[in-house]
């Protein structure tokens, strides 16, 4: 087994464990967003267990890479990754969305170590990522910024203000990843408000565009590496994903955007993710 193969196997294990945690925590909370958390699990696992330099022992280590979860409602996938990485105890995951918990319904950087930006209101995260990338460049430091966007989210106009600015400032230390799962609350994105052709739009805005299968870990690793080597422009990885990925009855079902599984559904989902 080559090193990359070993890495892929490890990341896949981590992603599966994160999916289990997503189901457990949303089930315990009886509130939250499973669909878009599950669709992003392979991407977020690859970021935290392969790509990014972060240190759970020093959450504010100045040299760390920054991850901005623009689609803040997918907080469970971030919390699962942070707990798995060791930023806080895994038991705490079950406090999601409860009173006095550090695990807010949407990520709160003031409460939970490892959360780089408070997000939740869609469309704002990429602007913040642009600001972080500008700061890194001003300070001539090597850390990079990773921004995970939802495909429904790119209907927000501010995303395109940020896209324009990132290309204008030639921010090659910024990598956006689009979790393109095709569904938003009211239905398929193409029916609610069609944003196609998506790749052409980002290209027209001056971005280096890569298109991959967002559940193919080898492809995610490769795309992130390509982004790192790209000079003079920001990169967006358009990752085709399946909403609810990993739980058969949740996959491609718009109803699982923001619905919590009942106890028996938690059991069934965990059995599939065993």
């Amino acid at each position: 087994m080559t090193m990359v193969e070993a890495d892929v196997r490890l990341i896949a294990e981590k992603a599966k464990e994160m999916r289990r945690q997503i189901i457990r925590m949303i089930g315990a909370a009886q509130s939250g967003h499973p669909g878009g958390s599950l669709s992003a699990a392979d991407i977020v696992a690859t970021l935290y267990f392969h790509e990014m330099r972060v240190d759970p022992a020093q959450p504010h280590w100045p040299e760390r890479d920054r991850f901005v979860l623009c689609k803040g409602h997918a907080a469970p996938v971030l919390y699962a990754a942070l707990a798995e990485k060791g930023f806080f105890p895994k038991e705490e995951l079950l406090t999601l969305r409860r009173i006095n918990s550090r695990l807010q319904g949407h990520p709160d950087m003031k409460k939970l170590p490892g959360v780089e930006m408070s997000t939740g209101s869609l469309g704002q995260g990429l602007s913040v990522s642009v600001g972080m990338a500008l700061a890194a460049r001003l300070d001539q430091v090597a850390w990079r910024v990773y921004a995970l966007l939802g495909d429904g989210e790119i209907q927000e106009g501010q995303v395109w203000e940020a896209a324009m600015a990132a290309a204008h400032y030639k921010l090659d230390n910024l990598c956006a990843i689009l979790d393109y799962n095709g569904l938003q609350i009211d239905g398929p994105c193409c029916e609610v408000m069609n944003s196609e052709p998506v790749a052409e739009k980002w290209r027209a805005f001056g971005w280096h565009v890569l298109e991959i299968d967002g559940h193919d870990i080898t492809a995610i690793i490769g795309a992130l590496a390509q982004a790192r080597q790209t000079k003079g422009q920001p990169t967006i990885i358009i990752a085709r994903t399946i909403k609810g990925k990993g739980v058969s009855f949740m996959e491609k079902q718009v109803g699982w955007h923001g619905t919590a599984p009942k106890p028996e559904q938690v059991e069934a989902a965990l059995a599939e993710l065993a």
Binding site: P62, R66, M109, E116, M117, G123, Q124, G125, L126, S127, V128, S129, V130, G131, M132, A133, L134, A135, A136, L138, D139, G157, Q158, E161, A162, M164, A165, H168, Y169
Partner: peptide
């Protein structure tokens, strides 16, 4: 000039970029 950013006519982005700069230790 290197510490000045004209973001164009885009006030929402203006505030977001300022937030990101502040998160990375700048005083925007």
């Amino acid at each position: 000039p290197e510490r000045f950013f004209n973001v164009g006519i885009a006030e929402q982005n203006l505030m977001g970029i300022a937030a990101g700069l502040a998160a990375a230790g700048k005083i925007p």
